[in-house]
Structure formats: C-alpha cells, structure tokens
C-alpha cells in the first residue's frame, strides 16, 4: 500500500495505530485501505481525486466538506449510487465506482 500520503507519526497525535488492511476495487482496479476508514480517505491516500462527474456539465468532483454535508464526494458503492464516501466506512471487498450523473459509466 502506498503510504506516502498517510501520516504515520504526528507531533501531537503520536504514532498512528495500525489497522487491518482490506482490499477493495475502484473502477475495476484492485486497491487496499484500512478497515473502517472513510472510503474517501482510502481513495485520497491512493491518489484518487475524482469521485464523480456531474450530470449537466460532466465536471469532475471530489472531496469538498469531508463530513457528509456537501454530497460532492458521492460514488457508486456496491452498486448503490449517491453514497457519501467521506462518511461511509471501507469494508473488505467493496466495489467502488466513479459516478456519472447518478449512474456508472455505460458503454
């Protein structure tokens, strides 16, 4: 797992406790993250910035508020659209897809 964006030791919060590593799929690619961390957090650590493309203007969106308010980070999780990835815990085997409008890309 790429840990370059993770804070392993913090001057105030100390050493980050180790969590169980889980495997998930992002647009068909195999990835890993920590169990129970927000999906958005695992994606950010893996370098993923774009969570969805908007319906009208097809513009990219990603994390904005990170507390479940703005709904900009929604993705398709295990087939369900509009899942706020910033507050949804990551689980083993999750299928996470970029959302286009309210669906996954169809072609």
């Amino acid at each position: 797992m790429d840990e370059s964006r993770r804070i392993l030791e913090h001057p105030i919060l100390g050493v980050t406790e180790e969590k169980r590593i889980v495997h998930f799929q992002y647009d068909g690619k195999d990835m890993t993250g920590y169990e129970g961390e927000p999906i958005a957090s695992a994606l950010r650590a893996a370098g993923v910035m774009v969570h969805r493309h908007t319906k009208k203007r097809d513009e990219p969106r990603g994390i904005f508020c990170a507390i479940g308010r703005c709904t900009d980070c929604v993705m398709i999780v295990d087939g369900k659209p509009n899942i706020r990835t910033c507050i949804t815990p990551l689980k083993e085997g999750m299928q996470i897809q970029t959302q286009y409008g309210v669906t996954a890309k169809t072609n």
């Binding site: 964006r5 804070i7 392993l8 957090s41 650590a45 990603g62 994390i63 508020c65 990170a66 507390i67």
Partner: peptide, 23 residues
C-alpha cells in the same frame, strides 16, 4: 472552485487529524 482539490478547512482538519491522511 468545484475542482477536486478545492476543499473546506474543516475537510482538511478531518482528513489530517482524524483520518491521518494529508489533504
């Protein structure tokens, strides 16, 4: 301002201090 990478300060705090990921 809607591009991924433009975030609220609260989001930055959540990401780094709770989730331990650099924004």
């Amino acid at each position: 301002w809607t591009l991924p990478g433009v975030i609220g300060a609260g989001a930055a705090q959540t990401m780094m201090n709770l989730n331990k990921v650099r924004p």
